[in-house]
Amino acid sequence: MNRYLELQLVEQAIITLAAMILVTSFALLGQSRVVATIRTFAWQGWLLALTTALVAWDIGHPHLYLSAFLTAILKGVLIPWLLTRQARQLGILRAVDSIVRPGITLLIAGALVVFCYGVALPIGQLVEGVTRDVVAISLANVMLGMFMLVIRRTAVTQVVGFMAMENGIFFAAVAATQGMPMVVELGVAFDVLVAVVLFGVIFFHIRDSIESLDVDALNRLSEVEK
């Protein structure tokens, strides 16, 4: 425990924000309404932007301020807005995408976090400060996003899980390595934006072909043909 008491204020703040982002990931897993899921995702985006701004202020990198601004606009506003609009047009904004066994789901999620700490353990010998915890927590966010993809059945909430994964990776890039080179960050942001637009197009294709957005009904193709 002593290790955490000796940290600088900024590092303590970063670890707190990491914990809050992890909480939003759990909240994403537990939400059953589509609209609440999207809203939680927006919160996660804002926390991510806040972390980026904090790191920018700490090390005085001007390009990180730009990156924080981009994150806030893209993940805090634009993507949630696009998803909400699409969900409204599809008529599933207020729909419930219930989780089959919430207790077991959250227990598995907890186990995943422990597993991620295990994976990140060797990194601790290399770097000082909070990097190991940050890598572990961002990896946990990635895993929880993947887990959300597995347990959710609506296409829209699956996309939220997908984007939450991306958030986890972005958090690692910002908090553990002080941001990737600008050109890479811009490229990734561009990809994410295009992906959201394309997901929107495919939502409508799915609805037109199976008349719902329940991806469990997408089961025509199989590995071995009958």
Binding site: V142, E166, I169, L198, I202, I206, N219
Partner: peptide, 20 residues
Amino acid sequence: VEAAWKYFILCGVGIAQALF
């Protein structure tokens, strides 16, 4: 449409690991 969805999600999730 099913194939496109699978392609998008599986490749997207897979390649996100590569970004990490």
